Simulated scan of single mutants.
Amino acid sequence: MSVDIKEYEEKIKEQIINLILPIQQDEYGVSITAADQPDLLDIHSHYIKKGGNFWTAAIEDEVVGTVSFLKVEEGVLALRKMFVKKEYRGSRYNIAARLLEYALEWAKANEFDVIYLGTTNEFKAAHRFYEKNHFQEITKSDLPSSFPIVHVDRKFYRRKLN
């Protein structure tokens, strides 16, 4: 079973929304809708057009994972929308690790220096994943002033690329 990682295509927007919302709402009980996330409704304008990017992982044309970078300022990215469908998590498929590696290579090739991210307190497995992948926990006050904080985020991380 091969995993296909590629840049965002408009034709799979609904699959992306249908992957992310149930993880947020059902698995983690985060009270958030698609309307609360305008970036999901217009991925190209929110990520790609502003100098970031958005990737999907698919198995047999089914989107099973996502990751994106939002350009915050020169040399600085915010990692966003890192989600993997429950049955594809873990070391068997390595979807999250593969998505992150792909995105980090893009960031390095495009001369970004640092990546920040915010997450909720509930996403414990995500915390372990980020820490395993060389993200260091920081305080909210350590974020750049231009970092767009999502209202549900309470835990923050940074990874320097150079």
Rank of each mutant, 00 (worst) to 15 (best):
E60R: 09
Q25I: 15
I48C: 11
P38T: 00
F112Y: 12
H46Q: 05
I95E: 07
N162A: 03
I32N: 00
V114M: 00
K86C: 09
I32A: 00
Y157E: 06
Y47M: 10
I17Y: 06
D61K: 13
A97I: 05
A126K: 12
E131Y: 05
Q37K: 13
A78H: 04
Q24W: 12
Y157P: 05
L41Q: 11
D26W: 03
R89P: 15
I23C: 14
S141D: 11
S145M: 00
I16T: 02
F123P: 06
S146G: 00
L21N: 09
Y8L: 12
F147G: 07
G118V: 03
N53T: 15
L19V: 13
E131R: 11
G90A: 08
M1S: 12
D61M: 07
H134D: 13
D39L: 01
I138Q: 03
D61S: 14
V152E: 08
Y8T: 10
K49P: 00
K49C: 04
N121K: 14
D26M: 11
G90P: 10
D36F: 05
A107S: 08
I12Y: 13
I59C: 09
L104Q: 07
R89L: 12
R158H: 05
P22T: 09
L143A: 01
F112C: 02
Y130A: 08
T33G: 02
K85W: 08
E7W: 07
A103R: 05
I95W: 13
I138H: 06
V67S: 12
Q136P: 05
E10G: 05
H46L: 00
Y8Q: 07
L40Q: 11
L161I: 08
G118F: 02
R89G: 14
Q136D: 10
P148M: 07
V72T: 14
Y93T: 08
I32K: 02
L41R: 10
R128Q: 08
D36T: 01
V150D: 15
